[in-house]
Amino acid sequence: MSTETDVPEIRLISGVRKRTDMLFRGAMTVGALASLVILALIAGFLLFRGFQIFADFGLGFLTSSTWDSGDVNDPTTARFGIAAMLVGSVLIATIAVVVAVPFAMSAALFIEYYAPRAVRTVLTSVLDLIAAVPSVIWGIWGYSVLMPDAEGWAKTLHSWLGWFPLFDVPAPIFGRSPFIAGLLLAMMILPIVTSVAREVYGQAPRDHVDAAYALGGTRWGALRTVVIPFGRSGLVGGAMLGLGRALGETVAVFLVLNLVFDVNFKILASAGGNVASLIASRFGEASPYELKGLMAAGLVLFLVTLLVNAAATAVVKRAKVAV
């Protein structure tokens, strides 16, 4: 039996936001803007400290490969250009992504769709653990364990594919090459790319996977037809995240790469460049003027990384539209 008290009161709709709503909205806005402000501050700081270099060398700073601090008391004798380092950074990061993505993709598919639950838990924990290894440890491991083996792989690659300029070498020295630095970076970015790939593959629509099975599709058929295309944009995003990290990696690369101020596209040769490693190697003993050069190099690296991330966002958006 209903009584008058069962009838709810008429709810008034007001256009005025509640105080708690406004507080929450404000807190979220500040949080969202904080990252932009921090980014702008970093860019501003680097520009402020490195501006003189851009003014002195102009575009030459990006196109020249000379890095000569000259006479400490006479900055006019200094010559700074980061072309070799920039090309090296992109080359090594590209090798890392090319090597890491297929492994990450396979690992993610195995963990999500093939591994028994217990194995999945262990593998996920191991990957998280690998992500937490400091880069200096990676560098030491890369130098003492990976490099001796990787030199052999490089020799094999050279003997098979040496006719192709990318795999040619000016002298038969295969240590501390962009190839080895790229392999090391590939292992370093593997956890993050795998983690992102696992996340997106795990979200593939179960309905469509079932549909594939119900049409006679094998597990591989379902993965190939449903899961991999569905996760394509996410995988690109993960690869770009990895690329971003690879571009900025410093210590590990510094330990396994022979820094040479010449633009070099021969990935097996014992000569390469890396902007972050350049900064790490020169920072301690740089003159005030060279320090400005390093700040300018940092700004260029910062902008390249931003550009890569912006490109990743665009690629992800396009891939989403296509699927």
């Binding site: 629509p205 309905d207 469509h208 079932d210 549909a211 594939a212 099975y213 119900a214 049409l215 006679g216 599709g217 094998t218 597990r219 058929g221 037809t225 449903v226 295309p229 296509a322 699927v323």
Partner: peptide, 20 residues
């Protein structure tokens, strides 16, 4: 398993593969 049963299914939401 489903893939070996020789069963054809038309689902309520059809579930056509969107990228094909």
């Amino acid at each position: 398993p489903a893939e070996l049963r020789g069963v054809g299914v038309v689902f309520q939401t059809m579930r056509l593969f969107p990228h094909l």
